[in-house]
Amino acid sequence: MRAALLLALMLVAAQGGPSLAQEVSARETRCWVGDVAFTAGVGINAGGGVAVCRAGTGWEAGEPDTPVVGCVLEDKFSSIGAVVGIRNNDSLLLQCDPSGRWTTVNTRLAGD
């Protein structure tokens, strides 16, 4: 009888856990993209436009003129203007442009 009562109490306690976790996340002041955390007010390129991190609600659509802070590639953040190499490619690099998109940069001269 004691084991059944203890099991029932454990089940009730376990069900109360997620509601507490949801309550805490509602007060979250950061937004995430992969393993990268952004503070409230930050804008990033979200494919079809700009997304802005809003405290408590997460990512929301931003205005077209919202400034972005950089680019995310493979769960790593890079600032505007950053250049990264492309694996197994000697002639192209990626550069984070002011819109928050990665663009390719050709490293070979026209005569090569």
Rank of each mutant, 00 (worst) to 15 (best):
Pro67Met: 02
Gln95Lys: 11
Asp75Arg: 14
Ala46Ser: 13
Ala51Met: 07
Thr39Tyr: 11
Asn88Asp: 15
Asn106Val: 08
Ser91Leu: 10
Arg54Ala: 12
Gly56Tyr: 03
Thr66Cys: 07
Gly48Thr: 09
Gly85Gln: 10
Leu92Val: 09
Asp90Ser: 14
Ile44Cys: 04
Gly85Ser: 13
Gln95Glu: 10
Arg87Ser: 15
Ser78Trp: 08
Pro67Thr: 06
Ala51Lys: 03
Leu109Pro: 12
Ala82His: 07
Glu60Phe: 03
Leu109Gly: 15
Thr103Gly: 06
Phe77Cys: 06
Thr103Ser: 09
Gly85Ile: 03
Ser79Lys: 12
Ala55Glu: 11
Trp102Gln: 02
Thr104Trp: 04
Ala40Cys: 12
Phe38Thr: 00
Val69Phe: 09
Val83Thr: 09
Ser99Gln: 10
Thr103Ile: 14
Gly49Asp: 07
Ala55Arg: 14
Gly85Asn: 12
Ala51Arg: 05
Gly48Cys: 15
Gly49Ile: 07
Trp102Asn: 00
Gly41Lys: 07
Leu109Arg: 15
Ala51Tyr: 01
Ala82Asp: 04
Ser78Ala: 10
Arg108Met: 14
Phe77Asn: 07
Lys76Asn: 12
Ser79Ile: 07
Arg101Ala: 10
Val50Ser: 02
Asn89Lys: 06
Val68Asn: 01
Gly43Met: 07
Gly56Arg: 05
Ser91Arg: 15
Ala40Ser: 15
Asn45Thr: 11
Cys96Ile: 01
Arg108Lys: 15
Asn88Met: 12
Phe77Leu: 11
Asp97Ser: 06
Asn45Ile: 04
Gly56Gln: 04
Gly81Thr: 03
Leu93Met: 06
Gln95Ala: 08
Gly62Ala: 08
Cys53Phe: 04
Ala55Lys: 14
Leu92His: 12
Ala82Thr: 06
Asp97Trp: 03
Thr103His: 06
Gly70Ala: 03
Ile80Pro: 00
Gly48Ala: 12
Gly41Trp: 03
Val42Lys: 09
Thr103Cys: 05
Glu74Thr: 11
Cys96Ser: 01
Glu74Phe: 12
Asn89Val: 09
Gly43Phe: 04
Lys76Val: 11
Thr57Cys: 04
Ala82Trp: 00
Val84Phe: 02
Ala55Ile: 06
Ser91Ala: 13
Lys76His: 10
Cys53Tyr: 04
Ser99Trp: 04
Gly70Ile: 00
Asp65Ser: 15
Ser99Arg: 12
Ala82Lys: 05
Thr103Pro: 00
Gly47Gln: 11
Gly70Tyr: 02
Leu73Met: 08
Gly85Cys: 02
Thr57Asn: 04
Val68Trp: 02
Val42His: 08
Asp65Arg: 13
Val105Gly: 02
Gly62Phe: 02
Ile44Phe: 04
Glu74Arg: 11
Thr66Asn: 08
Asn106Ser: 08
Gly43Glu: 04
